[in-house]
Simulated scan of single mutants.
Amino acid sequence: MSYAFTFPGQGSQTVGMGQELASQFPEARAVFAEVDEALGQSLSKIIWEGSQEELTLTANAQPALMAVSLATIAVLKAKGLDLATTAKFVAGHSLGEYSALAAAGTFTIADTARLLRTRGEAMQAAVPVGEGAMAALLGLDFDAAMQVAEEAAQGEICQAANDNGGGQVVVSGHKAAVERACELAKAKGARRAVMLPVSAPFHCTLMQPAAEKMAEALANVQMQDPCVPLVANVLAAPITSADDIRTRLVEQVTGTVRWRESVSYMVGAGASTLVEVGAGKVLSGMVRRIEKSAATAALNSAEDIDAFVEAVNAAS
């Protein structure tokens, strides 16, 4: 049995996530405390007691999802499961790439929290509210969605932001261009084209100011080579050097999240089970649509963790 560990992105956040782990395991509590201290605020209070609206703010959701993922990793470690010897690859969807890198030792938890707060604020500030938008095109393959985005641009920005597999591609850019893409997609046979309730047009060139901020932030943080290869969003291929990772994280702000290709790469390279670490089961659903032969496991609770550790031990 060979495992790849995957880490969710924005959209998986729910109020109360991670609270059960924090109540049962001091190792999980320590992760949330470290994130709170690094940010100089009680983010854990927002995660467990705040409103969904407050938690969904980009600057909160990004470090919050990372905290839950890393608390899960801390519990796995406490139960004797070591990422370096268990995982063949790590990968994360958009902000989840930072969680994956923290789990693999490239960043400290505190540095990851600060980087994600900076990233969230920079992405929010890059485009005035109302000027940008994102939409999910359902029922078109990636090449067809790319063509739709290109035709819809008409001198504005419209790009494929996320290739999520299973005929789901998210486009991002100027609001009018994204609206045109929805109409074009329907005309080209898309089952649905849905405008997404997001606060900014992520993963397109409108995010260039945020990419510049992240280049500066990443230049000033200490990084180690990961203990497990990272399958990078912008490459859909593994990288192992801290310098290369720094470059790819900057590119990721404006580049396409190549999730479909990343999943296919990991499965093709021998990862038979893709383990979703943290909040929700969004990535597990995507994996099943992309690679039907792959097994999935979502670690959302202490019960999930126990079952996974038992399965790993039984297979070894």
Score class of each variant (00 low, 15 high):
253 V>R: 06
112 T>L: 08
86 T>W: 04
162 N>G: 04
208 Q>K: 14
220 N>P: 12
315 A>E: 00
21 L>R: 06
128 P>Y: 06
254 T>G: 06
121 E>Y: 01
168 Q>E: 02
55 L>S: 10
137 L>T: 05
47 I>C: 15
225 D>Y: 03
115 L>D: 05
276 E>G: 09
12 S>W: 09
24 Q>H: 15
255 G>E: 12
115 L>T: 08
14 T>M: 15
9 G>M: 04
137 L>K: 04
240 T>S: 13
208 Q>L: 12
301 S>W: 04
71 A>I: 00
61 A>E: 05
202 F>E: 11
25 F>P: 12
307 A>C: 07
172 S>C: 01
119 R>N: 12
254 T>H: 03
135 A>E: 07
156 E>G: 07
64 A>D: 09
239 I>E: 15
242 A>C: 07
306 D>A: 14
50 G>Q: 12
116 L>I: 11
266 M>D: 08
214 M>Q: 08
308 F>P: 00
123 M>K: 04
146 M>T: 15
117 R>A: 12
275 V>G: 01
18 G>Q: 02
198 V>L: 03
124 Q>W: 07
144 A>E: 14
249 L>S: 12
108 T>G: 11
219 A>S: 13
97 E>I: 08
42 S>G: 13
271 A>Y: 04
188 K>F: 05
143 D>I: 12
192 R>N: 08
283 L>Y: 00
278 G>Y: 06
151 E>W: 02
99 S>I: 11
250 V>C: 11
136 A>L: 05
143 D>K: 14
182 C>W: 09
69 S>F: 03
115 L>E: 07
281 K>C: 06
41 Q>F: 14
287 V>E: 02
19 Q>I: 13
80 G>Q: 06
155 G>R: 02
125 A>Q: 11
72 T>V: 05
275 V>N: 02
71 A>V: 02
108 T>W: 09
58 T>C: 06
26 P>Y: 11
15 V>W: 07
61 A>R: 01
271 A>N: 03
47 I>D: 07
233 N>A: 08
313 N>L: 07
304 D>K: 01
31 V>Y: 08
224 Q>F: 07
9 G>K: 02
71 A>Y: 00
134 M>L: 01
237 A>C: 06
102 A>S: 12
48 W>D: 10
290 I>Y: 03
165 G>I: 04
228 V>A: 10
120 G>F: 08
177 A>R: 00
73 I>T: 14
264 S>D: 13
167 G>K: 02
68 V>Y: 02
55 L>Y: 12
212 E>Y: 09
314 A>K: 13
230 L>F: 10
315 A>S: 10
250 V>I: 14
184 L>D: 05
168 Q>P: 00
316 S>M: 00
146 M>L: 15
159 Q>C: 07
187 A>R: 13
173 G>Y: 04
89 F>R: 04
65 L>A: 05
254 T>V: 13
305 I>M: 05
269 A>E: 15
313 N>D: 09
63 P>R: 05
230 L>N: 10
20 E>L: 08
230 L>K: 10
16 G>Y: 14
18 G>E: 01
240 T>H: 10
35 V>T: 13
251 E>A: 14
203 H>D: 02
214 M>R: 06
256 T>K: 15
